[in-house]
Amino acid sequence: MESHKIDELFSALKSVKAPCGFEEKVLDKINRAKKRIYSFALRISFALAAILLIFFAEYRRAPIYPSDILISDSEVAEMENSLIDDFFANEKYKLFP
């Protein structure tokens, strides 16, 4: 078979066209892919927003630091003295009524 006959055979394929509705099918699939991407992005942004909300809610709550709990020795002594004074100030427990 000569080369030009091969070309002639192949030229018959030039009449091949995409099937009817090809464009719509592709666009439909593209739109579905778009929706999937958007819904995924939406879910991610909701999750991020929730994480940020929790973070800020925790951050805004007044934190308790160890220094707030610790009391100095002088403060302890002062508290003890006042407790003792209060105790003996009570009539019931007066040593020398």
Partner: peptide, 11 residues
């Protein structure tokens, strides 16, 4: 884009 290239690609 699809309209322009669909036939060629399909062929």
């Amino acid at each position: 884009f699809i309209g322009r290239y669909k036939d060629s690609i399909y062929r």
